[in-house]
């Protein structure tokens, strides 16, 4: 009887584990094929934009949040958008209406660069 219960529990754990893995792989497949979200987040941390490239649909609002200890800015190469100096935990948002590739950088640290691809 006890052996039967143990076998059942182990089987249940195994099924749950397989289901979790399946769900995870399905989620990753779905996220790759999903249309881009209407809001996107970019974190600024350790002198870098993360993710460095975001792909969004036209009309999406991208929000940058400074998680670094020091001030940063977000400035597009073509001056389409430009934030004020953001201190720690401050945010800047911009809505991308037109498709295209928008490269941007931090004007305090020009080596920090990123890209927004609007489809």
């Amino acid at each position: 009887m006890r052996r039967g219960v143990c076998s059942f529990v182990l089987m249940a754990i195994g099924i749950a584990a397989v289901a979790c893995m399946e769900g995870g792989s399905r989620r990753s497949i779905a996220s790759a094929g999903e249309p881009p979200a209407s809001n996107a987040e970019v974190k600024i941390d350790n002198f870098s934009f993360g993710p460095p490239t975001v792909t969004v649909a036209a009309g999406t609002t991208v929000t940058w949040t400074n998680r670094d200890d020091i001030p940063h800015t977000v400035v597009s190469d073509d001056k389409a958008f430009k934030s004020k100096v953001m201190d720690t935990d401050e945010k800047f948002s911009f809505t991308f209406a037109k498709p295209g590739t928008y490269s941007y950088f931090c004007s305090v640290h020009p080596k920090m660069t990123g890209k927004v691809v609007v489809q």
Binding site: I70, P71, T73, K82, K84, V85, D87, S107, V108
Partner: peptide, 12 residues
């Protein structure tokens, strides 16, 4: 030029 003379705060 880089910050367009905006009002500074904090560390800057």
């Amino acid at each position: 030029f880089q910050l367009e003379g905006q009002r500074l705060k904090g560390i800057l």
